[in-house]
């Protein structure tokens, strides 16, 4: 087994409001090994981006981590002061966000943005930084990279911009990349290019990737393991092939059956009745119980079982027996 890069244990994020304390992330735990892609999937409001932001220490106040631990290479990073966290961000953890245009500075050329970032994180000379910037652009597959270095972000197409963002995230050679919906704003053909790129970089450099997306197809193609989130909690965690083909949690099963891809040939798609609960109205027991076809009394009263080692689904009555 490869080295464990990131470990998140019992992570809880809370947002105090006037009426109640909301819990967008509730005791979530997973780890990512070097060279592994962990897919985090869920519908809007499931807490997947919030989990990613907690890991890189970019929670917007008043949201804050109130429980659990985040360790990177065995060292805790969830309680670091802001200036130390800044060094880790970029050096150790790279980030790729959904919209490539808003993650780049429109007033600086790509050369300036890349060299600035490299000089910030690595002890190299300016000339060395520029050489690395060029190598970075070439690595992410930008044609005629030397000429494109002096272009501004608006002169790139959406897919090329996302490549620049990936080059930026990689330029300090981080051991973990958090990619939050990196292909959602892109067309299918460009999406395929970006996913192939992420997979190649992960394989060649041994970078760990946390891939946050709502698209099950992207997860199937890119991830090694998958974490399914629902209402701020981990519903299921396991090998991507197991989880997608033999889901253990009824929510995962419902989600899979409601995608048109899986329903091929059927006239109707499976529906999960209702919608995800609002954060101020998460039901007692298992959060999924009001929508669950297998619900029993136990699910309404007892706090849900949590995903532990070996246990794949956070469910009292899983569809599949846990694989040891």
């Amino acid at each position: 087994m490869a080295e464990r890069v990131l470990r998140v244990a019992d992570l809880t994020v809370e947002i105090p409001t006037r009426h109640a304390v909301l819990r967008p992330v509730d005791q979530v735990g997973f780890d990512i090994a070097a060279g592994e892609v962990l897919g985090v999937v869920g519908e809007s409001g499931a807490g997947k981006s919030m989990t990613g932001n907690a890991v890189i220490g970019l929670l917007d106040p008043p949201a804050r981590i109130t429980g659990g631990q985040i360790t990177l290479h065995g060292e805790r990073i969830d309680n670091l002061p802001a200036d130390q966290m800044r060094r880790i961000r970029g050096n150790e953890i790279g980030m790729v966000f959904q919209d490539p245009l808003t993650s780049l500075n429109p007033l600086l050329t790509v050369r300036e943005q890349l060299t600035e970032t490299i000089l910030q994180h690595l002890p190299v000379s300016k000339a060395e930084a520029e050489a690395r910037a060029l190598a970075g652009l070439e690595e992410v597959g930008i044609p005629a990279a030397a000429r494109r270095l002096d272009a501004y972000p608006h002169q790139f197409s959406g897919g090329m911009r996302q490549r620049v963002v990936i080059a930026l995230a990689l330029c300090a050679e981080p051991s973990l990349i958090i990619a939050d919906e990196p292909t959602t704003a892109l067309d299918v053909s460009v999406q395929a290019q970006i996913i192939a790129l992420l997979k190649r970089l992960c394989r060649e450099r041994g970078t760990a990737v946390m891939l946050i997306t709502h698209d099950m197809g992207v997860i199937a193609e890119a991830a090694d393991r998958v974490a399914v989130m629902y209402a701020g909690r981990l519903a299921e965690l396991g090998d991507v092939r197991d989880v997608l083909t033999n889901p253990a949690h009824p929510y995962t099963a419902g989600l899979m059956a409601s995608t048109p891809l899986a329903a091929q040939g059927h006239h109707r798609l499976n529906q999960i009745p209702g919608t995800m609960p609002r954060l101020d109205a998460i039901p007692d027991g298992c959060a999924f119980n009001p929508r669950c076809p297998r619900v029993a009394d136990k699910c309404r009263k007892e706090p849900r079982p949590r995903v532990e080692e070996g246990d794949r689904a956070s469910c009292w009555f899983p569809l599949q027996e846990a694989v040891a």
């Binding site: 197409s157 053909s189 395929a192 290019q193 199937a220 193609e221 997608l244 995608t259």
Partner: peptide, 20 residues
């Protein structure tokens, strides 16, 4: 070919060339 598939585990696709 480029559209992600639910059964495309570890599929190695040749991503499409170029852009629109």
């Amino acid at each position: 070919e480029a559209a992600p598939r639910l059964d495309g585990f570890g599929r190695q696709v040749d991503p499409p060339r170029g852009e629109i």
